[in-house]
Design a protein around this nucleic acid. Structure first.
Lengths: 315, 315
DNA sequence: AATTTCGATAGCCCAAGCCTATGGAACGGC
DNA sequence: GCCGTTCCATAGGCTTGGGCTATCGAAATT
């Protein structure tokens, strides 16, 4: 059975005339005759009564004709789905992002992206890298924003910016006017870091040798960067934050930001998506939007540093 | 677009592997690859992501796959209309059944059903509930015989009988003359149960508190009820079997059946089929045949108990 | 009886679909 | 880091079958 044959059946049922039905389906009359005979043979019953002057649909044929119409109708829907689905910037983009980036990047990113791709709403999943990775592989997410290193088979990555880290201390801390702090000096202080599972925790501990990065007491760990910021402000210790969490929007009188001395620790923030993802334009648009955002945010002192670092590595 | 191409699409969506999908559609892998590329070209979008290790359906492809399923489903109805005219009892009925029911029910059921619907041969798939469920949903099976609980969206169920469980012990066991055993007493014995995946295993463990139903040693699990029966007969331990596996046909001198004391644990055996299945009469006939069989088997002591239990719940 | 109409049949041709063989890319083991 | 394996894509050849034109045969009309 072919879709063509079904088209013939429907046309013939409507025209009740081989010649006209053939015209309507853009074939010759013998072609239609033959195709129909073949189908009737295959189904094992006569669909049409050929009488002298007229072609009549048989009782059992009628049910089949109606079913054939339905089939063709459903096929038409396939084509219309396909037509509407050709725009790569149409349809939701499922975006994963880690908790130390999402709250600082997305509020500014979403409006920019919406302007560039208004028909592409974002479905956002904020989670740890370790949970985002399998979701990306399984196709539950289309793209994730994470910090390097990040490597998965079949997954491409693109660094979108690099942001330096800075030390934050409570107001009145003896370091608050320092022009540069060495990472190793942090071992003298009560360093507050994120809970286990956050890649930013590992990056901070790696950047600051001398910290015992195993079995850190629970009291020194926070569940989010905002928790940590508040803990520092209340004098519980010092910490390290990425520059995107230190824009003027987050400034506080109780908190002083002290830069690291060179070389400044930093992290590379990247997009990651399956190489086989069928809407690369969506990725491009997302990357371009972040690019635009980083340039704009570059007006502020902290992000300018991020920008410099980014240019230095030639991204 | 051709029906063949749509079949390929559906098969590939299900198998997520070109080679296996090709096998399933009885063509070679290049044929399927080419046909799919042609269709994707015609529709103007990618339906599948080809990762090296995995084939994923794209978000937009998913809608088309589902629509293709619908088309094929409607085409199938054409054939089914043609086959029996209006006779729902013509054409094969694809029946799934779990391993703890099939061997005990089917040998008697098949002749009865054949007598009632001689033009409806059975295609039987014996498999675990977890494997039957997707096959039923995908339309690879028309109806399944399983033990409750069993719930799937769009699928109707009908309890056909309830069968009590009994304890089986080796000959000479100290319980062999007992009139009733409490489920909790089984924790004193070496209880042999089925491998993981069998719902009957879970039902037995649930009915017998005190058994450590986690991390059960492998040596105590069997791959079929017949294995278990033989293990009990050879003195390895005791077990629990459903009454349909304890008809006189299976009696053995080495094996003694001891009833549970009230309340007797049992399981409800049910039919399940898609609500949209277009041959409900076939289901009715199957259900009626089982009904007849249960009444007939009710002549034997064990099945009579099953019958009583069944009437008590008013099925 | 002659003419006309319309579906069926015959015979040919070409495109489409399927095959085998091979290529190429990416992952995993040593 | 290199080799082997796996798996999808591509190439090239063959066969099938759906399409065409030409013609036939039956029935209705003149």
């Amino acid at each position: 059975m072919t879709l063509t044959e079904l088209k013939y059946v429907v046309a013939l049922a409507q025209e009740r005339h081989f010649g006209r039905a053939a015209q309507k389906t853009f074939v010759t009359q013998p072609t239609l005759s033959l195709a129909l005979a073949k189908l009737e043979d295959e189904l094992g019953l006569k669909l049409f009564e050929r009488n002298k002057n007229e072609v009549l649909v048989t009782a059992r044929g009628q049910a089949i004709v109606e079913q054939a119409r339905k089939v063709l109708d459903e096929v038409g829907k396939i084509q219309s789905i396909a037509r509407g689905g050709q725009d790569q910037l149409a349809g939701a983009l499922r975006l994963g992002v880690i908790p130390t980036i999402g709250p600082y990047l997305l509020p500014d990113l979403v409006p920019i992206l919406h302007k560039r791709a208004p028909a592409m709403p974002l479905v956002i999943e904020e989670n740890l890298t370790g949970n985002l990775a399998p979701m990306l592989r399984e196709g539950e997410l289309d793209v994730v924003i994470i910090a390097l290193p990040f490597s998965l088979p079949g997954v491409k990555t693109l660094v979108v910016y690099e942001e330096p880290f800075s030390v934050v201390v409570p107001e009145g801390h003896r370091w608050q006017l320092r022009k540069g702090v060495k990472p190793s000096e942090l071992s003298e202080e009560n360093l507050l870091v994120l809970n286990n599972g956050h890649c930013f925790r590992d990056q901070v501990l790696e950047a600051c040798p001398g910290q015992s990065n195993t079995a850190l007491p629970e009291g020194r760990a926070g569940s989010s960067l905002e928790t940590i910021r508040n803990m520092v402000a209340s004098g519980l210790g010092v910490s390290v934050l990425p520059s995107s969490a230190l824009t003027p929007r987050y400034a506080s009188k109780l908190l002083k930001v002290v830069p690291f001395s060179s070389p400044v620790p930093s992290r590379k923030v990247a997009l990651a998506w399956r190489a086989s993802f069928d809407r690369p334009l969506a990725i491009d648009t997302l990357a371009a939007s972040i690019e635009k955002l980083v340039e704009y945010e570059g007006q502020t002192p902290i992000f300018r540093a991020a920008n410099r670092a980014r240019r230095n590595i030639g991204v």
